[in-house]
Design a protein around this nucleic acid. Structure first.
Length: 298
DNA sequence: CCCCAGTCCTGCGGGC
DNA sequence: TGCCCGCAGGACTGGG
């Protein structure tokens, strides 16, 4: 389930393709349903072949190859997609290859076990429209505490559910939402409008700390072993998870059992002592002063 | 606007 | 041991 740290690790891992020219694009046939790409294969190839990769960006949970003709190839890995420079985990789920010339890596691979991912070739205008501000929020590593509070504080949704909405803030998925809320000591089911200024600040700080630490460890490779970096090496942040997938195991802070609940049909893990009870408990043990309270505008 | 359920898909693990 | 079923969830869609 690549989220921001995993996708950022992919992005960094494939930067050697910058300057390479695309010699061919091949969609791989297998016993599985063909991967969704747009436009259709023929026109995708016509537009991509011969272009040079000018940059590698990330938009939320997508990797973007910027081409020198001002078009872009967008990889959206969803649950099990990987963008790699080396041979993928297996041949059976290899979905697309991009042959390169004029650079050291000879090929770029897209591998996807479940095949839920998408690959799109977009013009600059299409890219701008696809990622317009009303369709995707600020990146979780760029958003400020004040922006976060302004965007969400008027909502009555539960904070965990709001964090998963890519229009609120981009890049957080189910795993890191639980991790961030635990570090911030905020109950996942608390309504956004009930969060205090201190809690918004704690949330923002925890978001940066968790995501940056996960990037340093090159993401989380869960028990199914799916996630790998661009060189097919597993990440290490799973060894630092505080609550995710740790139901009934001790909270690393207070040793009380971690609890699993379901919100919006997804698992949430939290510590009922560190993150509860709802509505009470200040985010910080130190009594706060008035200064610098984040007041949502309007 | 907000929220929920359904959809896509494959591999795995629990239960019988 | 083998088989079936449910679960995992990112992004989107349609309905209330």
């Amino acid at each position: 389930m690549p989220e921001l740290p995993e996708v950022e690790t992919m992005r960094r891992g494939i930067t050697p393709v910058i300057g390479a020219r695309i010699a061919d694009v091949k969609r791989i046939r297998s016993r599985h349903r063909p991967l969704v790409i747009s436009p259709a294969a023929r026109s995708f190839r016509r537009r991509a072949i011969g272009t040079t990769i000018a940059g590698v960006d990330r938009i939320g949970k997508r990797v973007v190859l910027q081409l020198d003709n001002h078009e872009a190839i967008v990889f959206e890995p969803r649950m099990t997609g990987l963008v790699l420079l080396t041979d993928p985990p297996d041949r059976d789920h290899l979905r697309l290859t991009i042959d390169l010339t004029d650079a050291r890596p000879r090929q770029l691979f897209y591998w996807d076990r479940r095949g839920l991912g998408h690959i799109d070739l977009l013009s600059a205008a299409e890219l701008a429209q696809r990622f317009a501000p009303d369709r995707i929020g600020p990146d979780a590593l760029d958003v400020t505490a004040r922006q976060l509070a302004n965007r969400l504080a008027s909502s009555r949704r539960e904070i965990k559910v709001a964090l998963l909405d890519q229009r609120s803030v981009a890049g957080i998925g189910n795993l890191y939402a639980s991790e961030i809320l635990h570090l911030a000591r905020i109950h996942p089911a608390i309504g956004c409008s009930a969060l205090t200024g201190d809690q918004w600040r704690a949330l923002h700080r925890a978001m940066r700390r968790v995501l940056n630490a996960a990037i340093r460890h090159e993401g989380s490779t869960l028990r199914d072993g799916t996630y790998r970096n661009a060189l097919n090496v597993a990440g290490g942040y799973q060894n630092h998870h505080r609550v995710y997938d740790r139901a009934n195991l001790p909270c690393p802070v207070c040793h009380r059992r971690v609890v699993r609940i379901v919100q919006a049909q997804r698992s949430t893990f939290f510590c009922p002592r560190c993150q509860g009870p709802r509505q009470t408990e200040s985010a910080s043990p130190v009594r706060r002063r008035e200064s610098g309270n984040i007041a949502p505008t309007r």
